[in-house]
Write a protein that binds this DNA or RNA. Structure first.
Lengths: 353, 353
DNA sequence: TATATCATCCGAAACGTTTCGGTTGTATTC
DNA sequence: GAATACAACCGAAACGTTTCGGATGATATA
C-alpha cells in the first residue's frame, strides 16, 4: 500500500542502497538528488520506522512510566523531559499505571517488548523487580522522585527530608507549638522522608511528638480532606499543619473550607507544590515548591548521557577488570538531589509568647 | 543478544512456525507446550513487537496528540481513553505539542512514521492538513473537543454553546445585568462557541452587549489574571463574570485574591471544570463541568469501532458504488456531542430588584 | 595516455516475526 | 487393517529497512 524504498529505487532507476544512504544523510549526485526527491514527493513516501527499528535494533523511543498522568507534578516533569528528548531525536511513550504495581509491571514489560531504548520511571513503590529486564539488557534506566534500594541506577530526587524539616522549623520559629502533618503512604519513600523531616524538626526542639498530630494519608485529595478533619477534631489546640503534597494540600483546603476554618487565624498551613493553586487560595498559601522543570532537565540529560555512553553490563567485561567487577558501573551511577524552596504566602500566623 | 523465536525453536527441537503459533494462542501437544515454556523461561524470551509490527503491518498502538500535557482537562480524558484502549490490547503514544501548530504536525508525522494504527487528536486549531496522511492511509482518526471543518471524521465534543448559555442565563435569572466573560482565543472553536452561547443569552434578554464586558484571553492562567483585572477596572458596575475554562478560572481567582474582591458580594462568578479546585476555593465556586471521563470513553469506543470496521477509502470502492462515492463514509461518520452540567457553589449572589 | 584517488553507486544478506501450503502422525470410522 | 479425518507440525518467503564489500565512473596526477 504505502510506498517503500524499493518503489523509490524503481522509479528513479537507482539502487536500494543509494536511496537508503540519501535518506540517512549520505551524498548523491545532484541530478539523482532531484530525481529521488521528486519520487518521494510523488509517491508520498514516508520512512517506515518499524522496519528501521528492526534492522538497527534501536527505536529512538524512551519509555516513561509514572504512577498517575492526572497529576500536575508528573506532567510538569514529563513536559520538560519530552521537550529535551525530542530535541535530541528521541520520542517518548508515556504509560500511566494508576499507582498500581501490577499495571506498572505490565507497562514496563510492554515497553520492553516494544524495544524502547531506555526507560524513565517514577516507581510506585520501593521494589524494583519490574525493571530487571532493562538492567539485564543493558538499557538505561533513570528513576524519578523515588529511589529503589535493590536496583542501582541513576536517579533524580529532591531533598524531601530537608523540605519538610525547613517547613516545620518555620512553624516553630513563628511560635507554633502544636504542628500537625498530613503525611503520605508508608510505601512511598518521599512520604517517609518528608515525615522524617517533620520529626527531625521536632527533635531539634527537644520535644516529644503527640501521635495524634500525625495523619497518614495516601497522597490523594480525599485523604487530604479526611486528614484535615481528623487532625482538627483530635487536636483542638493544633495551630499549624504541614500538607505533604499537592493533592493533600488541595484536599485540606476543601476540608478547611467546609469546616469554616479561618486561615491563618484559626490555623496556619504550609502546602506543597503548584504555585498557581497557592496563589488562588484565600489567603494565598505558603508552599514548599519542587523544581519540576529542573528535575525534568536532569532526567533527560542523564538518560541521553547513558544512551551515548552505555554502562557496560557484567557480561561485557573483559578479563582485565574481572576483579573490580561492577565497581566502574557503581562509580558512574549518578544520584542527583535537588533542593526545594519555600514561597511565602499569607497562611502563616506569628504567635506571640 | 536477546533470545528470539529461533532460539526457542532450536532449544526445543520444534519448528519456527510451531513456536510462533503457540505464542499467538495456537495449540501444541502438551509435552511440547512444557518444553516451549521452559525454553522461554530459561532464555528470557520476550516477543519482539518491532518485528511483529513489521510483519503484520499493525502496531497495536494509537497515537494521541494533544495541545498540552500539563492540563488537567486533557489528562483526565487521556487517562480514561488509555484505560479502555489498554483493555482492548492497544497502547498509546501521547504527544504534547505545546499548543504549537508546527510541533503538532511534527508529532503527527512522527506517529505516522511509527506506523500507529490510528490517531486521536485534540487539534490546536481548525485546520486539518496535518492529518491528511492518516486519512489517505485509511487509518482511523478521532477528534476531541474541537472539530475541523475541512476534514470529515469522527469526533467527540461538548455542547459549548449551551454550556455558556446556561451559565449566563443563570446570572440573568438571579437578577444580574452586567455580566462579563473572559473568553478564549479566536482560533479555537470551543472558545468561539462559548462566546456565542454567552451572546445568545444576552440576545434572549433583548439586550445589547457592551463590548467592554468581553475580554479575549488565550486559555492560560496569566490571561485569566489579566482578564479579570481589565474587566473589573473597565466595568465598575459589573456584578458577574463567566470564566470560560479552567486555566482562566484559576487565573481569575488569583486576580480576585490579589485585588481583595469579595465573592459573591462584590462579584459573582461561574467557573469552568475541575470540581476539586472549585471546592477548594473560598467560597466554593459554582462551575460548569465537562464529562471528561465520558468523553474519553466515547473516544476510545469510537476508535476501537473503526479499527475493527475500517471506513473504505475512495480508492477501495468498486465500480458498483462509483456514483454514491463517499456517501457511505459520510453516513458512517459519528459526531458525538455531550452535555455539560452546572455544579452549584456559593459564588453566585441573588440580586433583588 | 596511463595510473591513482575518490566519490558515488550497487545487490545481497540480515534483523525477528507471521503465514502459506504442505507434510506428518494420531485417532476415528468402516 | 485400511481408509479417512484432523490436529499438530514444518520450512521458506515475505515485511521494509540498513549495511557490507565491492564495482563503477569521474577527476586529478604523473
Amino acid at each position: 500500500m504505502a510506498a517503500t524504498i524499493k518503489d523509490i529505487a524503481k522509479k528513479t532507476g537507482l539502487g536500494l542502497a543509494t536511496i537508503s544512504s540519501y535518506i540517512n544523510g549520505g551524498n548523491v549526485r545532484e541530478t539523482n538528488r532531484i530525481k529521488i526527491e521528486e519520487a518521494i514527493e510523488e509517491l508520498h513516501y514516508e520512512i517506515n520506522e518499524v522496519a528501521r527499528g528492526l534492522k538497527t535494533n534501536s527505536t529512538k523511543i524512551i519509555g516513561v512510566v509514572i504512577p498517575e498522568l492526572n497529576n500536575i507534578f508528573c506532567t510538569e516533569i514529563i513536559t520538560s523531559v519530552e521537550d529535551i528528548l525530542r530535541n535530541h531525536g528521541y520520542a517518548t511513550i508515556v504509560c500511566d499505571c494508576r499507582t498500581d504495581v501490577e499495571l506498572e509491571k505490565e507497562a514496563v514489560d510492554f515497553l520492553y517488548r516494544k524495544r524502547v531504548d531506555g526507560i524513565i520511571n517514577m516507581p510506585v513503590n520501593a521494589k524494583g523487580s519490574h525493571l530487571r529486564k532493562f538492567k539485564k539488557a543493558g538499557k538505561p534506566i533513570v528513576l524519578i522522585d523515588r529511589v529503589i534500594q535493590e536496583l542501582r541506577c541513576d536517579s533524580v530526587v529532591v531533598d524531601n527530608r530537608k523540605a519538610a524539616h525547613d517547613a516545620v522549623k518555620q512553624f516553630f520559629d513563628q511560635g507554633h507549638k502544636k504542628i500537625g502533618i498530613i503525611a503520605g503512604p508508608e510505601d512511598i519513600s518521599t512520604a517517609n522522608e518528608r515525615l522524617a523531616g517533620y520529626m527531625e524538626a521536632w527533635e531539634e526542639q527537644g520535644l516529644e511528638i503527640p501521635q495524634s498530630l500525625i495523619f497518614r494519608g495516601d497522597y490523594t485529595i480525599e485523604s487530604g480532606v479526611e486528614g484535615l478533619e481528623t487532625l482538627v477534631k483530635e487536636n483542638p489546640d493544633m495551630t499549624g499543619v504541614l500538607l505533604s503534597n499537592y493533592e493533600i494540600t488541595m484536599g485540606a483546603m476543601i476540608g478547611i473550607n467546609e469546616l469554616g476554618i479561618n486561615i491563618p487565624d484559626d490555623l496556619s498551613v504550609i502546602g506543597f507544590d503548584n504555585l498557581s493553586f497557592a496563589r488562588a487560595c484565600k489567603p494565598k498559601l505558603t508552599v514548599v515548591t519542587q523544581p519540576t522543570e529542573e528535575i525534568g532537565m536532569q532526567v533527560a540529560h542523564l538518560i541521553l548521557e547513558r544512551l551515548e555512553h552505555p554502562v557496560k553490563t557484567a557480561g561485557d567485561k573483559d578479563k582485565n577488570n574481572e576483579n573490580n567487577r561492577d565497581t566502574k558501573d557503581e562509580n558512574l551511577i549518578q544520584d542527583i538531589k535537588l533542593q526545594t524552596k519555600i514561597v511565602e504566602g499569607k497562611s502563616m500566623k506569628t504567635i506571640k509568647e
